[in-house]
Computed example of a mutant assay.
Amino acid sequence: MHKIGYFLTNGFQVMALGTQSVFEFANVVAKEEIYQVTNYSLLGGEVKSSAGASINTRQASAAADVDTWMVSGIVDPTASDTSPDELNFIKGAAGRSQRIAGLCTGAFVLAEAGLLEGRRVTTHWAYASVLKERFPATRVEADHIFITDGSIWTSAGLSAAMDLVLGLVEKDLGADIANNVARVMVMYHRRSGGQSQHSQMLKMAPRSDRVQTALEYARSNLAGPLTVDVLAREAHLSERQFSRIFYSETGLSPAKAVEQLRLEAARNMIERGHHSLEIIARDTGFRDRRHLREVFVRKLGVSPQSLRRDAREDF
C-alpha cells in the first residue's frame, strides 16, 4: 500500500482536498486499495480552510511511513504565516518520503522549507514572478501545468493539481489506469506537465456567443476544413461579418486562430506521447508530418521530436 499524507496549514486552499478523489478512483479502477490517504497538520485537530470550513487532521508526528507528501498552499502566498516548526517538519518529511508535491502555491511552502534550491518548479501564474524574486535559486518555469524534478513535484493552479496527481498515478500504476481514472472522473484528458497554463481558447476570450460557438466547432473539428465560410456558417453570419467580428473580439484572423488551436492540440498530443507524428498531423488538421514540423519550428522554435523528448524527460 502506498501511503499519501496531505499536510495542511491554516488557510489551506480547500480545493486541494479535491485531488484526493484521484487516489480514491485509482483504487476503484485498480480494484484494490493501492493508496491510503490521511490528512495531517503539525498539531493535529481541526484546521480551517480558505473557504472557512474546518477539517479534522492527525498530528504530523504520528505519520508513519508516508510515501508521498502533498502540501497545499494558501490563496495569497505573500501573506503566508507558515511557522518554523511546520517548515522543519516539511523539510524532514521530504527526506523520509519517496516524493513531495507542492500543490499550486504550495511551492512557496516547499521553497521556504529549503527544498527548491536549484530545482525546476512551477506555481500559479499569478505568483510565479514572486516565487522567482523571493527564491532566486529556484528555477521557476511559469508556463507549465506541473513539473517533476527528482522527488519534487509542483503544480500550477489547483485544477492543474488534478493533472499532477494523475501523473503520480501514471508513474505508479501506468498510463492505462491513469487514463481510466481520468475517464471515470470525466476529465477531458490527462494533461502532460509541459502543457501551457493558458489555453488558446482562454487567450482569445471571445465576448459573443457566435464567435465562441465557431471556436468550439473549430476545436472539435480540427481534422476537417475550417475555412472562413465554414466557421461563418456555424456562427450564422456572413463571411464578411464573421471575419470583422472575429478579429475585433480576438485580435486574430480566423485562419490564425485555427492555426493556434491546431498547434495547441498537436502539442498536447505530442507531450502525451501516445501517437505517431503522422497520426497527430492528420488528427489536428496539418497536411502531413512535414507541415506539422514547419509550423512548430516557426511558432514554437522547437521541432515536434524535441518537444516529445523534453516531455518524456520532465516526466
Rank of each mutant, 00 (worst) to 15 (best):
M1N: 10
G5R: 04
A16L: 08
G18H: 11
V22Q: 09
F23D: 05
F23Y: 14
F25H: 12
V28N: 08
V28I: 11
A30P: 05
G45K: 06
K48C: 11
S49A: 15
I55M: 14
T57P: 05
Q59W: 03
A64E: 12
W69G: 02
W69Y: 12
W69H: 04
V71H: 02
A79G: 04
D81R: 10
I90L: 08
G92Y: 04
A101G: 03
G102N: 01
L103H: 00
A107P: 06
F108M: 05
F108N: 04
R119Y: 09
T123A: 08
V130Q: 11
F135W: 07
P136N: 11
V140G: 06
E141K: 09
D143H: 13
H144C: 13
I147P: 01
I147C: 09
D149H: 14
A156M: 05
G157S: 14
M162E: 07
M162T: 14
L164I: 04
L164G: 02
L166I: 07
L168K: 00
L173P: 01
V184K: 12
Y188V: 00
S192Q: 08
S196P: 00
S199I: 02
A205V: 06
S208A: 07
S208D: 04
V211L: 03
T213A: 15
R219T: 10
S220G: 08
A223N: 05
V230E: 02
V230M: 03
E239D: 12
R244Y: 09
Y247L: 13
S248H: 05
E249G: 10
G251V: 13
P254E: 10
A255F: 07
L261C: 08
A265E: 13
M269I: 02
G273K: 12
L277W: 06
I279T: 15
I279Y: 07
T284P: 05
F286T: 14
R290H: 08
F296C: 06
G301M: 12
S306E: 14
L307M: 11
A311R: 03
A311W: 03
